[in-house]
Design a protein around this nucleic acid. Structure first.
Length: 360
DNA sequence: AACTCGGGGTG
DNA sequence: CACCCAGAGTT
């Protein structure tokens, strides 16, 4: 009969982590800036996805000062394709705060770390423990799964009471003075062994401590909450070309894909005539008339809560217009598009434009 | 407590 | 296709 013995659990987990942890770039020196950036990138994002972004980020923005002084577009370009773009904006906001209020030195006090934009309870705990080796818990999705299985918690892991007990356990279990490795080991176990699907319990260093394994309930833990079905929408997009330049606009910093650039577009209302609605929207947004020349492609793209069909039309201005160069509206060549950060669906379109130009 | 906020990996 | 990922901020 499996029984949970804390000292056995701690020792086996730490020994396992020492031997089998993945060598990751932010695990080399445990410097505040590196761990901070990695933790933000890793929010809702897998390690293998983060790695190339992290390496490039550290080459371009190697320290807090360079991040604080970089242009907003530079920061967002580094983040292009990684998603949850407010993370990038918040990183830069926090870097400026650290410059102004903490003399460019990352704060070590948990309560101060917690106040920085983009840093919640988890990330503050992760930085406090991993960088400063403070005895603070860090409960992410991995840790929720690991603890629920270890303790055979079969109820909803997101309920207020359950969340409270999970954080309490994660704190009580820390071997004093070893939080840096213990917290990472919990997460690493969740990522490498105690995975959501087909966990490899046969290789688990703490199998003998696991109540869920003993009860045979691993497969149903953690309990899944129902999610809202994703909606389908249609959007018309205008690639407005005048000579060799294209019209792009900047999205507001708040909200969906904040701060990214895009081709002008509008969501289709029910059974609306696509071309007509697009012409009217461009007149409304930019004050001139366009002619819709052809449908370039319809791109299908899935977001978290909805999926979109993006009808991309090649258009030309009907009249002669000035090529404005404002903060939020620019006319740029295909090559100049590279400097700006676009949503993934628009990146697909830009690739198609490149191919099309090459063949002409 | 329930939304929103992306994109990619995986089975 | 569905589910998940080193969550945070807003309402």
């Amino acid at each position: 009969m499996a029984r949970f013995q804390l000292d056995v659990f701690q020792t086996r987990l730490l020994d396992w982590f020492r031997e089998f942890q993945r060598p990751l770039p932010w695990r080399k020196d445990y410097l505040p800036y590196q761990v901070w950036v990695s933790e933000i990138m890793l929010q809702q994002t897998q390690v293998t996805t983060v790695l190339p972004y992290y390496e490039r980020w550290m080459r371009t923005l190697p320290d807090i000062k360079s991040l604080a002084q970089a242009s907003e577009d530079t920061v967002l370009k580094q983040w292009e394709g990684l998603g949850y773009y407010s993370r990038a904006s918040n990183l830069q906001k926090a870097a400026k705060i650290i410059g102004e209020q903490h003399e460019n030195e990352f704060p070590s006090e948990f309560e101060i770390i917690r106040t920085l934009p983009g840093i919640g309870r988890y990330t503050a705990g992760a930085i406090a423990s991993i960088v400063f080796n403070q005895n603070k818990p860090a409960v992410d999705g991995n840790v929720v799964r690991v603890i629920c299985r270890l303790m055979d918690f079969r109820d909803n892991p997101k309920s207020r009471e359950r969340v409270k007990t999970l954080w309490r356990l994660a704190e009580d279990w820390i071997p004093q003075g070893k939080a840096r490795f213990f917290n990472q080991a919990l997460m690493e176990l969740g990522a490498m062994i105690c995975s959501p699907k087909q966990p490899t319990c046969l290789l688990c260093p703490v199998q003998s401590c696991c109540q869920g394994f003993a009860a045979g309930s691993i497969e149903q833990i953690p309990a899944k909450s129902k999610r809202t079905p994703l909606k389908s929408i249609e959007t018309m997009l205008a690639v407005i070309q005048d000579q060799k330049k294209f019209l792009i606009q900047k999205r507001p910093l708040e909200g969906l894909m904040g701060g990214l650039w895009e081709f002008p577009n509008v969501q289709r209302k029910k059974k609306e005539k696509k071309e007509k609605a697009l012409v009217e929207e461009i007149r409304r947004q930019h004050g001139f008339n366009i002619t819709v020349e052809q449908l370039l492609i319809t791109i299908k793209h899935g977001y978290t809560s909805y999926k979109v069909q993006l009808h991309c039309f090649l258009c030309v201005p009907e009249e002669e217009i000035a090529h404005s160069d404002k903060r939020t509206v620019k006319w740029v060549t295909l090559n100049e598009l590279r400097q700006f950060s676009f949503p993934a669906a628009h990146v697909k379109l830009i690739q198609i434009l490149h191919d099309k130009m090459k063949n002409e």
